[in-house]
Simulated scan of single mutants.
Amino acid sequence: MLTSDFDYDLPPELIAQEPAPDRDGCRLLVMDRATGALEDRVFRDIVDYLHPGDVLVANETRVMPARLIGKKRGTGGAAEVFLLRQHGTPTQNRSALWEVLVRPGKRLKPGSGAVVDFADAAGNTVLSAEVVDWAQNAQKGERVARLSTTLPSLDEALHAVGRTPLPPYIKDYAGDEELYQTVYSRRESSAAAPTAGLHFTPALIDRLREKGVGWETVELEVGLDTFRIVDEDDPERHVIHTEFYTVGQRTADAVNEARERGGRVVAVGTTSVRSLESAWDAEAGRLVPKDREATSLYILPGYEFHAVDALITNFHVPRSTLMMLVSAFSTRDNIMAAYAHAVAERYRMLSFGDAMLIG
């Protein structure tokens, strides 16, 4: 198995630069997990493929205003700080440590006393970031920065100066940033959206519930590594990123009950897959609750899925761990054939693009 086995030709013009006019009006490619058979549908038709007793599990995380653009104290030079995750125990005060990415990296090194100031719309400096250390096991130049604010809370300061980050392949989007949030999102804890959920509307969720399909949630704090390709020729040598996830008691009970009565567990997105599979207790043969635990679960072809029976997902970046995950859920040949079909049929690809149902 080689990383190049998960490559495909992605025409740049197919990378969606804005969301579909209607969330549930995007296209849906339905693929039979076992045979690879394909159907072209519209996302709201997903109701036809789900049955009473099935349970959908979605990642309810919300994207943080994680992109901070400011000026380096002392020189006034432009600088950017990108928040990845809070360092240590999360707090809600006026100062906290965060793991971050910075630009320019050469001028914002730990130990140099580097501080970046961020101003609100009125030009008042309300937030500062001091680069204090390298992040543990830093592989992409991650640092630890101490954020501090003059406002009542860091949350208020971040919303005053921060921007919602978009994937690097989306250029110059000037639309409503709320369209990069799911309609059911709650706590801000991610640097990127769980994009498979962007297609759901409150009305569509209600239709599913009326049909007897359950709706439950998990939380996985999505990191930027979700966009990165695998650099190693041998994917098994790749070190996957660590993310934090939570599976509540209600969701664990709902999944276990669905499986006991013959219903399917349908993961909304790869982040839900990683959460559910990470929370699976092999010895007990059931899902168990987890509270913000770390997972480095790396799903490659050959992996045996325990908690997930069907998957709703977007189309992914070539040579990514997500291509490997969806290939593991079916077969590499089925997935590559589906992607070739999607490209030929001019599906819209990646985060703002169309969706797949693999079941």
Score class of each variant (00 low, 15 high):
T251E: 03
L10E: 09
D32Q: 06
A196V: 03
E210W: 00
Y347F: 13
A192Q: 08
E210S: 12
A196W: 01
L154M: 01
K106P: 13
G263I: 06
G141V: 09
Q17D: 02
R228G: 01
V47R: 08
V47G: 05
S278M: 12
H238A: 08
G70M: 02
T35K: 13
I358W: 07
L10Y: 05
V30L: 14
V265K: 08
T217P: 01
G77W: 09
D40L: 10
D32I: 02
T217I: 02
V265E: 01
T313F: 05
G263L: 06
F43P: 13
R44E: 13
V126D: 05
R107V: 06
L28G: 12
D253M: 02
Y8E: 09
L198I: 00
E18M: 11
R41P: 00
S112K: 11
I229V: 14
E188Q: 14
S278K: 08
S112T: 15
P202N: 05
P12G: 05
A145N: 04
A16W: 12
A338T: 02
R23F: 03
D206V: 07
A174K: 15
P235Q: 01
R332C: 00
L127Y: 01
F227V: 00
P110L: 04
N334S: 15
S296A: 14
R348W: 04
R264N: 10
H241D: 09
S275T: 12
D24M: 08
M323I: 10
G105C: 00
T149S: 11
L127N: 00
T125F: 02
G262S: 09
F200D: 08
L204V: 05
E345H: 15
A252T: 03
L97V: 03
V326S: 13
K211E: 07
T61M: 13
Y180Q: 11
P152N: 06
K71G: 00
A279T: 10
G263K: 10
E277Y: 12
G285N: 09
L127R: 06
R62P: 11
P110T: 03
R286Q: 15
L311V: 04
V132Q: 01
A282F: 02
R85F: 14
L56R: 05
V288N: 02
E80P: 11
D176Y: 03
F305I: 07
F6S: 07
I229W: 00
M64P: 00
A340P: 13
V57R: 08
G36K: 09
G162Q: 06
R274D: 04
G111I: 05
Q136P: 13
D309R: 07
R346M: 01
G285S: 05
D253P: 08
A145C: 12
Y184C: 10
G105W: 00
L147F: 15
A282M: 13
S190F: 10
R163G: 10
L108A: 06
L127P: 00
E142W: 12
A282K: 14
G70Y: 01
A258M: 11
T164Q: 08
D253G: 08
A328N: 05
W280V: 06
L83T: 06
T35M: 09
H316G: 07
P235N: 01
L10Q: 12
R274C: 12
